[in-house]
Every structure is written in structure tokens, then in C-alpha cells.
Design a protein around this nucleic acid. Structure first.
Lengths: 221, 221
DNA sequence: TCGGTTTTGTTCTCGCGTTCACAAACTCCT
DNA sequence: AGGAGTTTGTGAACGCGAGAACAAAACCGA
């Protein structure tokens, strides 16, 4: 209304919207890099793969950053979303478990380019402590406390086998880490104030398999 | 809509339930391996990290596989869920893009143990065609058609850079692949009958960052 | 200045998913 | 056999999210 819609407020963004903001951000970055200055909600919605009404509603939770009859300024909206998500600052991240997946994560350029900095790679296996992955020394898991303290790490990534994941999570929590991204196929028990997101590769495939099975069976009978 | 209400049909399982079935399956496998013969909905719910009422309602979509006053037979329920998901059969899978992530996926034992068999690794880069990853030859992307036909592949995994993903998806669709697991950070355009699930590592981190930012800011002010 | 056009921001409705609460059904003990 | 105790399966209420539809607000051209 009165212009100043309290920029830093945005206190109650629905979870479903939060999950889509990074998608919008990515689409805006692509648009910006292609030289687009302004875009409508419809254009951005197509680029993000969502419905335009949903997009507008999502953006309205952040504030009124568009201009009616015109659309959105790509760079301005990009900054606003980045600020809302919190990726205008740099987040130090620790990765535990340097197997195939851990190495893939350490090498993933999408982290650094989106506000995340891998400050340490940890592994319990002493044989790995000589290695350098993605330009970072692999260090003993026991160094977690010191690293977490020195770099004020709030986000940890677990890429260990399932059996080790709960122990790693416990240690992370003890170090003050309050957000965990878990790639181990197991349920983690953590205090309420700690956020856990899980990515399970085989679960995604199983969901596809379910639908696939129904497609073929449905066609047959 | 009439007659064929066949008990094994399970015709209308909500999407949210489908996404949890693999979690239940994993919990049941763990319970079974630990020698547990029977479990209540409460026990299984704890193992799966969900509410027990939700678990019971989810299972009720499959049929009545429990016994009131007793609980569920672990192995029996495990088989029923596996059958429902479709992982009692083996699903041939093709992985395209053998970078760090593709290699991690190829080596991931969780696939084979859960009903998926990687029948081919494909990469557009000729330099990689000599390599053997996870005991499987890396082959040219052009072999996709032949491999898909020979092995009746229905599920494809895209682990390429973002720029290549849409082309790979198009080729997959042309080969009759109808389920795609996409790790490339881009929106894929595919026909309606093709299922796409996406896993974006940096998006997960960004969601964590959002909540993390609010925790610290909320505490401070 | 003023109507016409475009596009946002928002309201409203509908459907899905979650959770509570309880009847039905099974076991166990006396 | 029968009652007490357990646990499942489900009906009902509730809250959240998706999408349609529209009013408000900007630009444009005369």
C-alpha cells in the first residue's frame, strides 16, 4: 500500500513458496544472463515451470516488487529473492563422508555460485586423510568441532553410509550446526530447532517406478 | 468404475502417500534384517519418521494388511509395499552424463539393491568412452536408441550439465523412455505422459539457508 | 487529460493432505 | 466363555495450497 511494505518483514512465507523461490531465482539468473531486463509473471512462470497465478501469489508474500502493466525488473527481483532466501551472504558448509557422492558434492560448482562455500571435507576413514578433493584437504571427522567453531558453520551435509549418519548428525548438532542436508538413506533424529532436509536417490527412482508400473499395467489391462 | 474393484488394484493412491511408501519399505527392510517379525503402526511410524495415524491411512490405501490388536507382519507388509511400488521386478535404467554425480550414481549400491539395474552409462564426450565406471563401459550418447530398445528401458537418469539436459530429455522421450530423474538444474519440457522428478542439490541448500537466516535473525531481533 | 490496454496483487473457491478420535476386531487372561 | 486390553482401519474436521477470476494500478497514444 504505502510503498514501504516493511522490506525485512516477510515473516510468514508458506513452506511451499519457500521451496519454489530458489527455482524462481535460477530462472531470473538465466534471464538476466541472456540480457532480459524486464519480464512478466507469465514469462517467468514458463521459465520456472509453474503456473503464473501461483508465481504471482508466491512473489506477493515477499512484497510488491512488480509494476502493474509492465512486469518485474529482472535484476531487482533477483536481488530481492536472493536476499529473502539469504544467499546474498556466504554460507560456510561442511561435508562429511567423502565417498562418490561426497566427492560429487564437493566438486559441484552450483554450490559456490549460489552462496555456499565448502569450508571442510571430513571423513572417518584415515586412508582418505591424504587426499585433496576439489582443492580441499580431506580431514579427520574429529576436526568437526574446531572447524565448525572457527568458521561459524551452521549448515552440514551428510554423505556417509546410512549406519554412520545418526552419529554424524549428533556430533553436528553438538557443534551448533542447526541445518542438515542428509543424503544417507536413513531417518535422522534431531532436536526440534534443527532443520533436516533429506535427499534419497533411490526413493525418487521408486516413485518413478510406481507410476511407470501403472502406466504399463494400465495400458495392458 | 463398477465390477473390477479387484483387491490388488489399489487404483487411487494419493501422490503424497506414494512418496512415503519407499520410506516405509526401507524401514521394514531394516526391521526385518534386525529380526523383527511383527510391528505396530506406532513402531513403524517411528522408524519411518512419520505420524502413526498417517502411516495407517497410507497403508489402508493398499488394503488391509494388518491385524487389529497385533500389528503388521514385517515381511508380509514389506512384500506388499514392494509389489505396490513395483520394485519386485527389475527396472533397467540408463544414466546419461558421467561427471562426478553420474559416477556417484553409477556406484550407488542402493539402486541395485532396490530393484534398479544400470544397463548403460552414456556420455557425449568421446574422451570418456574408454572408461569403465562401476564395472560398466561408458558408451557414446548416440547408443541411447539401441540400448533403450534392447533393454526395454523405461527410466532414464539425467546427470549432465544444465545446457545439455533438454536435448537429452528429448532424445530419451523419442526412445520411448517415459520416466526421467533429472539432476540437472533446469526445467525440462516433456510430453504429458512422461513423468519427471527433479533433484536439485543447491535448491535444498537454499531452502535450509532460508530457515537458517530466519533462525539467527529471529533470535537477534 | 482521458480512455484503452496490459499486467500485477488479491480474493475466493475448491480439493488434497493431515490429524483426531473412535468403532471394529483381534488377543490374552481368568 | 467372556471381559479387559490393544491395535487397526476409517469417518470427520481442519488447514494449507492451487488455480480461477477480477479489481487496482501502471503505461500508451491521441
Amino acid at each position: 500500500m504505502t510503498a514501504r511494505t516493511s522490506p525485512e518483514s516477510a515473516r510468514d512465507i508458506p513452506e511451499a513458496t519457500v521451496a519454489r523461490l530458489p527455482v524462481y531465482l535460477r530462472a531470473l539468473v538465466t534471464l538476466s544472463e541472456s540480457g532480459t531486463v524486464t519480464c512478466s509473471s507469465e514469462e517467468l512462470a514458463v521459465a520456472a515451470g509453474v503456473n503464473s497465478a501461483k508465481l504471482r501469489k508466491d512473489l506477493s508474500y515477499l512484497g510488491s516488487y512488480g509494476t502493474r502493466g509492465v512486469g518485474y525488473d529482472v535484476d531487482y527481483l533477483r536481488y530481492q529473492i536472493a536476499r529473502e532466501i539469504g544467499v546474498t551472504q556466504d554460507w560456510p558448509v561442511v561435508i562429511v563422508g567423502i565417498g562418490n557422492l561426497g566427492q560429487a558434492l564437493a566438486n559441484y560448482s552450483g554450490f559456490r555460485s549460489r552462496g555456499f562455500r565448502v569450508v571442510a571435507l571430513l571423513d572417518a576413514n584415515p586412508d582418505r586423510h591424504d587426499e585433496v578433493v576439489a582443492g580441499i584437504d580431506v580431514r579427520p571427522f574429529d576436526h568437526l568441532e574446531q572447524i565448525a567453531r572457527d568458521h561459524a558453520v551452521a549448515i552440514g551435509v551428510i554423505a556417509t553410509p546410512a549406519v554412520a549418519a545418526q552419529d554424524v548428525a549428533d556430533r553436528m548438532v553438538a557443534c551448533g550446526i542447526t541445518s542438515i542436508l542428509n543424503f544417507a538413506p536413513t531417518v535422522l533424529n534431531v532436536p526440534d530447532q534443527v532443520d533436516v532436509r533429506k535427499v534419497d536417490l533411490s526413493i525418487e527412482l521408486q516413485i518413478l517406478a510406481y507410476h511407470e508400473q501403472r502406466k504399463t499395467h494400465g495400458a495392458a489391462g
